[in-house]
Design a protein around this nucleic acid. Structure first.
Lengths: 227, 227
DNA sequence: ACCTGAACACCGTTCAAGT
DNA sequence: ACCTGAACACCGTTCAAGT
């Protein structure tokens, strides 16, 4: 960690794991997951591709580290809340907003299963589940349901953003395209989907996300109340 | 679709979209997502890489089609159930079992956001949400919470299987490795995660998955009961 | 209409060689 | 200890040329 402090003091010219991660995030923000390549990264850092491998193990390691650089501060600032319930909502919405700013975090999170970024989210949620008074035997179920729900929305939003980017569509046009696609489905086989297609355009992803968390928390609380 | 019926009658030598998808599924089952390449596929089909492009648009299209070939029959057979609640559970468990047999389906589902496979799941769930008596205004929230939860578990399981495969570990050894990793975390910063690490080894993914669905359904039902 | 297969423009990763 | 950059073994996709 303190390996190259002497050089760092001299300026920004030296390579370091932190500088690599920082540049990676810039590339990911600018060009999505495809934007991060060792060639683009080494060009931006003014170095050779091989140099990067001195500081990181491989691309998967790099993506996880970039993801953690977003998730860690998000979890640190989202643990406040008037009640455990509010705190859990804040954790979820904190992740939602972070992924809104960095859409690649959703898929990075999925790829880095059981790694540090995911554990941070689990930890933040779990503490509030305990504070909520959930008994030992139910903590795992409650925590993992919330975590999986958050990861599900994460993955889905990330995929939607990637598709919209590839087709060079803004959000509204993307939703219009999906709604049109759904409306064209077979009326008998896809009756439900067709019936909710109009809601696609009006809906607010962030509110929907919060509503899902509330549903799970309601389920937890009704289980707590059961004799 | 009926383009090459004459040739198909002669035997299995002719190429078709269905044969390509079938061979893709075999490659995906055998080697995970990395196992599906146009070179491996053309070799297995005894043809050139370019020939495949006559029948499918690109790799993303191919993966979505392979995913749909798994999801469609799963949804067709999983819609039975004594009650809407049982039916929703059956839909979820049907997907769980399908992904257990074909681990790549989880990530394919995420990549094919808003595409046919996902719509089939949404449709199956939505119908049961209606049957459950959920009013119009809440159907979207209930359906998308269930869908996102299922997709979250899907992505997570797929990622776990991929990592286990890469490290050539069987499930039990993979869980042991994760549990050991968690146990080594900082005691203050990761108190909750450390406390549930032992449960990692004992837990049953399938039961946990069903428990999460029940939590959401309990939440829906408690919202229905509210004045 | 359908297929061939070489060619193109990329990847992530390695490694002998430098400083 | 850290970096260079050419080389390696791959990718998905295209396309002139065949039948």
């Amino acid at each position: 960690m303190a390996r190259n402090t002497r050089r760092t003091q001299r300026g920004e010219t030296s390579l370091s794991r932190d500088r690599i991660i920082e540049a990676s995030i810039e590339l990911l923000d600018a060009g999505g997951e495809d934007g991060l390549t060792f060639r683009a990264l080494s060009e931006r850092l003014g170095t050779g591709a091989g140099a990067i491998y001195w500081h990181i193990a491989n691309k998967s390691d790099l993506l996880t580290a970039a993801c953690d650089a977003i998730v860690a501060p998000t979890m640190r600032s989202a643990t406040e809340g008037a009640s455990p319930r509010d705190a859990i909502r804040a954790i979820g919405l904190g992740m939602f907003d972070a992924m809104d700013e960095h859409p690649w975090v959703g898929s990075a999170l999925t790829q880095a299963a059981a790694q540090l970024p995911m554990v941070r989210i689990l930890e933040a949620i779990g503490r509030q589940v305990v504070a909520l008074g959930v008994p030992d035997a139910m903590r795992w179920h409650a925590g993992s349901a919330l975590l999986h729900y958050i990861l599900g929305v994460a993955g889905q939003n990330a995929a939607n953003r990637r598709i919209a980017r590839e087709r060079q569509l803004v959000r509204a046009d993307f939703l219009d395209a999906v709604a049109a696609q759904w409306a064209a489905l077979d009326g008998d086989e896809f009756a439900f989907t067709r019936s909710i297609a109009p809601q696609l355009r009006e809906h607010d992803d962030r509110l929907d996300f919060a509503a899902g968390i509330d549903l799970i928390l309601d389920g937890v609380q009704s289980a707590l109340a059961r004799p």
